[in-house]
Amino acid sequence: MIFEHRTYTVAHGLMDDYLQRYEEFGLPVQQRHLGRLLGFFVSEIGPLNQVVHIWVYDSLADREQRRAAMEADPDWHAFKRSNRGTFVAQEVKMMVGARFNPKHV
């Protein structure tokens, strides 16, 4: 099992707009294709204006297949176009659980 940890830094003043757009348009497409969302978080203390989402996949091949299907979806392309100018930075990490990681994920 692998975990994809995505951090996006949103331009100042655009967070509420982005969250509304994501919930209405982005999340449904991602849930349709990517499957297991472990969590979606907004920063409160520390670096501000950040959102983090963590997705769970069976393997890198599973992730590749699911993301390819999402990239072929016109709804996903429409959502990506609506985000132009929203982000100032993006970081993606692929992680594996430690041997004592909870198995309920």
Results as ranks from 00 to 15, higher is better:
R21Q: 12
T9D: 09
D58R: 14
Q50T: 10
F25Y: 14
E24F: 00
Q50C: 15
E23L: 10
V88Q: 11
Q50M: 12
V96I: 12
F25H: 15
P74G: 01
S82E: 09
P28F: 04
S59D: 09
E64K: 14
R32M: 10
I54A: 06
Y18R: 02
N101D: 10
M94W: 10
R99F: 12
V42Y: 01
F79I: 03
L34P: 00
E91D: 13
D16G: 02
V88I: 15
I54Q: 10
L37P: 00
K80I: 13
N83V: 01
A11C: 09
V88S: 13
R36I: 04
F79E: 03
F25C: 10
H104M: 07
L48R: 13
T86L: 10
G26N: 07
L34W: 15
E64I: 00
R36A: 12
K103P: 00
F79P: 00
T9H: 14
A72I: 00
W76C: 06
D73M: 08
M94A: 06
G13Q: 04
N101F: 15
A78D: 12
E4T: 03
G13E: 08
K103N: 09
D16N: 14
A69D: 11
I54D: 05
R36V: 07
H12I: 08
L60S: 06
R67S: 05
E4L: 09
A68V: 00
R66T: 01
N83P: 00
N83K: 03
H5I: 02
